[in-house]
Lab assay of single mutants.
Amino acid sequence: MSIQHFRVALIPFFAAFCLPVFAHPETLVKVKDAEDQLGARVGYIELDLNSGKILESFRPEERFPMMSTFKVLLCGAVLSRVDAGQEQLGRRIHYSQNDLVEYSPVTEKHLTDGMTVRELCSAAITMSDNTAANLLLTTIGGPKELTAFLHNMGDHVTRLDRWEPELNEAIPNDERDTTMPAAMATTLRKLLTGELLTLASRQQLIDWMEADKVAGPLLRSALPAGWFIADKSGAGERGSRGIIAALGPDGKPSRIVVIYTTGSQATMDERNRQIAEIGASLIKHW
């Protein structure tokens, strides 16, 4: 067993022997301040990774656009098919120029040779490549099948209805392509620590998230040296922004954090800054 596999296998073990965790309302004060600064709703939840206990939450059962955070769930569904012998990570998928959609920095470079399922998941999570996500959605049967996968996990809230990039439209009061912070946090925890996926697939999923290259201005910008984070960000229309993450000190994750916002007129930089400040408060009061 590799060191990384050992780390993920012992996530519940280490967490069980940690000192009790206590909620700190100071972080919620910052979440509410972010709402004021952005002029928009902000949803927040913080779960203990081992027990699933909610440590703090704000608007945990209000719907927010998922945006690209759905790509972690998508690759979880792909990995479940791999575990069941219905898919192979090494299978190569070929596609054409007509398949390319807006923001496809990886797939646009491989029109000639195609990409493997493993490479597509890596591109979808680490670079948020939209064509990679659409190609992977095709392998599982489309958005409705991802929703069905989530329902089978016990998540009857999260739903995907459309493809990239239309799913980022974020129309107010439109339930399409949305989740709730509580539902997303619980589902992410199941994917990373539950028995739904094999140990190898859980490790692969967290490795992809740990290698995320496009979430630097968010929670990662607030992390002290030595902290662990595996995350996936999302951005959408109407001032929408979000991030889902597993993080913790001492090089291992111990909490799940989900943050979503929508309806702001603020710039992307300002949305990023507010999420980073929430992260800084979380870490300060850990």
Rank of each mutant, 00 (worst) to 15 (best):
80 S>P: 01
268 M>S: 07
102 E>P: 14
194 G>S: 14
74 L>C: 05
277 E>Y: 08
124 A>T: 12
214 V>G: 06
265 Q>V: 12
158 T>S: 12
264 S>Q: 06
272 N>M: 03
84 A>R: 12
103 Y>T: 05
93 I>Q: 05
247 L>K: 05
61 E>N: 13
242 G>S: 07
13 F>E: 02
16 A>V: 14
191 L>T: 06
262 T>N: 10
40 A>F: 04
11 I>T: 08
87 E>Q: 08
275 I>T: 03
96 S>K: 10
109 K>S: 14
127 M>G: 06
253 P>I: 10
165 P>L: 08
83 D>C: 04
112 T>K: 15
279 G>M: 04
275 I>P: 00
70 F>T: 05
42 V>A: 06
164 E>H: 01
110 H>R: 10
4 Q>I: 12
153 M>Y: 08
154 G>S: 08
101 V>S: 10
104 S>E: 01
256 I>T: 03
138 T>D: 12
186 T>I: 15
85 G>E: 11
247 L>D: 00
221 S>V: 11
117 V>A: 04
120 L>N: 02
63 R>C: 07
24 H>P: 06
283 I>K: 05
242 G>A: 10
243 I>N: 02
171 I>E: 15
232 K>Q: 00
245 A>C: 10
32 K>Y: 10
123 A>H: 03
255 R>K: 12
45 I>L: 13
190 K>E: 15
54 I>A: 13
159 R>M: 07
174 D>Q: 06
211 A>I: 07
182 A>V: 15
139 T>R: 11
75 C>V: 10
131 T>K: 02
24 H>T: 15
83 D>V: 03
173 N>A: 14
86 Q>N: 11
246 A>F: 11
35 E>Y: 02
176 R>A: 08
52 G>F: 05
17 F>T: 11
35 E>I: 03
29 V>Q: 14
73 L>Y: 06
257 V>M: 05
279 G>D: 03
129 D>T: 00
259 I>D: 00
17 F>R: 05
247 L>A: 05
126 T>P: 02
30 K>S: 10
44 Y>H: 03
33 D>Q: 15
271 R>S: 08
129 D>N: 00
193 T>G: 15
99 D>W: 07
184 M>Q: 04
167 L>W: 01
51 S>Y: 08
184 M>H: 02
198 T>A: 11
247 L>Q: 02
216 G>Y: 08
45 I>K: 01
1 M>K: 01
235 A>V: 05
207 D>Y: 14
